[in-house]
Amino acid sequence: MSNMILVEPSTDFKLQYIEMIEEWKGTGERMVPFVLRYDYEDFDSFLDKIKNLRDNPMQDEKTVNSSTFWLLENDERIVGAVNIRHRLNRYLLEIGGHIGYGIRPSSRRQGYATEILNQSLRHARSLGISRALVTCDKDNIASARTIIKNNGILDSEATINGVEIQRYWIEIR
């Protein structure tokens, strides 16, 4: 696999980010993680919103502080994004977990999801997380395989808002 690194969102990669988002929008798929759905027309405000998620206390029941990264290939192409939650609340314990990640459509089935989750787990460890919860829709076989490749152990399944969710725990070493 080529050189892959997690980078913090910045204006340095604005064009690469927009290219990834436009590709994704063209598929009509729901973009994951949720931060990919933020409006980026005013790119500086977009970056401020992501930094606010990381640094400022959250005031609602669904949101906790989280760090966002882009998976950069060979210092030039963004192939995915990840959002790492610093802690879990009741909502995220049921659905969402510590780590939400997504790979742009043209880069799937090439090992990038396994790599982004692996690097995200190392970052989660640096945040003091020793056991990470990662969830996926039960019908998302590729995501389940990625989680299992990263030592995920299926804990439970539940139907939430009509969607079957699998919950995996990963011990971070």
Rank of each mutant, 00 (worst) to 15 (best):
E115M: 11
E157K: 13
N65T: 01
N89L: 04
I141N: 03
M4F: 13
M31G: 03
H86S: 06
Y38N: 15
K149L: 00
I147A: 04
C136L: 04
D48G: 11
P105C: 10
N74I: 02
F46R: 09
V64I: 07
K51E: 14
E171P: 00
Y112G: 09
L6K: 08
G102W: 08
Y101A: 11
G111H: 05
A142I: 02
A142Y: 05
H86Q: 12
N118A: 13
T135I: 03
L88S: 06
E8D: 09
C136F: 06
V134K: 08
M58D: 00
G100K: 05
H123N: 04
S106Q: 08
F69R: 08
G111L: 09
R173N: 13
W70Y: 15
L127N: 05
I50E: 10
E115V: 12
V32F: 15
K138P: 00
E171L: 04
R122H: 10
Q59E: 15
K149W: 00
A142V: 09
R90T: 11
A124H: 05
K138D: 14
L92A: 06
I141T: 12
T63F: 06
N56S: 13
N140F: 10
D39L: 07
A158H: 03
I148V: 15
Y112W: 05
M31K: 14
N151K: 14
I116N: 08
I18K: 13
T146N: 03
T63E: 14
E23S: 09
L127V: 02
I148P: 02
R37D: 14
R108V: 10
K25I: 00
S67L: 11
V79S: 03
R54I: 00
R167V: 00
E29S: 13
G128C: 06
D139V: 12
V134C: 07
G152S: 06
Y112H: 15
M58E: 10
A142T: 07
G100Q: 12
R104Y: 01
L72C: 04
A132W: 05
F34P: 02
G26I: 06
P57L: 04
E22G: 01
G128W: 04
I153N: 07
G28T: 07
R167A: 09
D39H: 09
R104S: 15
Q59T: 14
Y101R: 05
T114Q: 13
N150W: 04
N74H: 03
N89Q: 04
Y101G: 02
I5T: 15
E164C: 03
I116W: 06
P105Y: 12
G162W: 10
G128V: 05
L154E: 15
R30H: 14
E73K: 15
L53H: 13
M20P: 02
M31C: 07
D44V: 12
I95K: 14
N74Q: 12
F69A: 01
H123Q: 11
R108I: 11
S2G: 10
N151T: 03
M1W: 01
G28A: 08
I165T: 09
N83T: 12
P57I: 07
N161Y: 07
K149C: 03
G128S: 05
D60F: 02
E29C: 04
T27A: 08
F43C: 09
R108L: 09
G111M: 08
H86A: 06
I153A: 05
W70S: 03
R108D: 06
N151Q: 13
F13E: 00
F46A: 10
I21E: 07
Q110M: 15
